[in-house]
Nucleic acid binder design. Structure first.
Lengths: 200, 200
DNA sequence: GAAATAAAAGAACGATCGTGCTATTTAAGG
DNA sequence: CCTTAAATAGCACGATCGTTCTTTTATTTC
């Protein structure tokens, strides 16, 4: 579930394959990801690409892992520099939006959730794992804002995490269909209103 | 863009094809919809199915139209029985959730939005058309609640429509990955809080 | 009921799919 | 440098894809 540093030649090309596959998934979704298209994209043969993964599903899982890791790196880890409480929570929300913009294609994790939410299997299982983890970390950041006294003590952190998640989903949706500028403006207002409604 | 009553034999089977295609799209998404799979499902030949539509894209557009029409019938039209203002607005929100549950597979409109949000073409254009219309109708219901004095006069109806849409997206997401019961509970609370924060 | 028309089937097309198997090339270890 | 192992290519497979064309069957229309 985590990327290891590329020491050997094989691991290096494997990383580059995942990187290209990641780009394709953003535009075509996980079901649109084919071994042939990746092979063309990286200038290798189909079997050369295939040999790095036991199956297409393994490749898709690797892309999913990469998506989760990048999200953590770009959204959660930088927010840790803010002090516990509202500053950190708001940093998460804002960085999340920026992440959704910078993903010129769609967000792979959201695509995966939609594509596999009713297809039992390894992919769906891992999507649930990552989504559960994300929601827990979000709730933890909220709990800290309760501890600092910035949010009301009767705040249901899972509920607020759910509501924040909804804003981010709407942000993703609108920015891709109606344009980024309007979407981020609405999303920021929505988040501000949301946090304000829980303020102590 | 609308379904006509089936007078001739051909139109009747065409409707049944769309109905089956609709079921498939809920489970497999629009990209997972193949003419062969529909043919098997309705017990026809591939070419027999194909003859009813000039192309796969035309078939996909027909399914999209069907989805929009069913949504209108199940969510918006029944809500018109409630009096203008908050009752109607809340009826829309609650029926929307029930709609998301009854769609045992995913909601085709949400699937289409994710699958085609960065693939220019007829499908994306029509998705944008329907999403724009939905958001406008939602904003209109909100405007009525402002006129009745139930919501504050400085309420930005487009903003609230965006926020409600986010709750419904989160509802769709959570109910499919984490289970319906918890999702609808959170969604109802979220909607209540949202409306309350705009109350006059 | 015959003639005209619509609906469905059948077969074939080039393309692409994921995957296995066998060579060949390239990098790593001593 | 030589040997061994890893990485990649090449080829073939059965299956499925959307689409076109031709033929057969079913449904209207008079």
């Amino acid at each position: 579930m985590q990327a290891s540093p590329a020491t050997t030649k094989g691991a290096a090309t494997r990383d580059s394959i995942i990187d290209r596959a990641y780009q394709i998934v953003r535009k075509e979704g996980f079901e649109g990801l084919s071994i042939g298209s990746i092979a063309d994209s990286v200038g290798m043969s189909k079997s050369g690409v295939f040999a790095h993964f036991g199956s297409r599903e393994d490749l898709q899982l690797s892309v999913l892992d990469a998506a989760a890791q990048r999200f953590t790196e770009h959204v959660f880890l930088p927010a840790l520099r803010e002090r516990r409480g509202l500053p950190r929570l708001e940093a998460i929300g804002r960085r999340w939006m920026k992440w959704l913009r910078n993903e010129q294609g769609g967000c792979p994790m959201i695509s995966a959730a939609i594509e596999y939410d009713d297809r039992p299997g390894a992919i769906r299982d891992r999507v649930i794992f990552y989504q559960t983890r994300l929601r827990k970390e979000l709730a933890r950041a909220i709990d800290m804002a309760i501890e600092t006294g910035e949010l009301r003590t009767d705040t249901d952190s899972d509920q607020l995490a759910f509501e924040i998640f909804g804003v981010e989903l709407a942000m993703h949706h609108d920015s891709r269909l109606f344009g980024f500028d309007e979407a981020i403006e609405r999303s920021e207002r929505a988040l501000d209103r949301l946090v304000a409604s829980y303020r102590s």
